[in-house]
């Protein structure tokens, strides 16, 4: 049983790290956003394993979840923005920014 839990934990942690790195290194915004949301969900499992709910981590989850929402909203724009300027912005569109 203990070994089983250890293996489970290892998978848990390794996947968590893998998701984080994959999100960070992903070039495409919408892909990064999706990976991040997956990461957020996976993270909640980690919280559970760490017996941390007494810390009122619901708040933290909402914070991270909302970050994901903002991220998705932004990712939608990066896909369409090229052709649709926003009315309330400065007129001068910027040139491409090198990373």
């Amino acid at each position: 049983m203990a070994v089983l839990i250890l293996v489970f934990d290892l998978i848990l942690v390794a996947t968590l790290l893998g998701l984080a790195l994959a999100a960070l290194t992903s070039r495409e915004p919408s892909r990064a956003a999706t990976l991040f949301i997956a990461f957020g969900i996976w993270l909640s499992l980690v919280w559970a394993r760490l017996q941390a709910p007494d810390l009122a981590l619901a708040e933290a989850a909402i914070g991270a979840g909302f970050g994901g929402a903002l991220m998705l909203a932004a990712a939608r724009r990066t896909a369409h923005r090229a052709t649709r300027g926003r009315g309330d912005e400065e007129t001068e569109p910027d040139e491409a920014h090198p990373p």
């Binding site: 250890l6 934990d9 290892l10 942690v13 390794a14 790290l17 893998g18 790195l21 994959a22 290194t25 394993r49 760490l50």
Partner: peptide, 16 residues
């Protein structure tokens, strides 16, 4: 990524 993740994961696991 995998090479980075594996040792990190082990260390984290131990700490947890």
């Amino acid at each position: 990524v995998a090479l980075l993740v594996a040792p990190l994961a082990l260390v984290l696991l131990w700490a947890f």
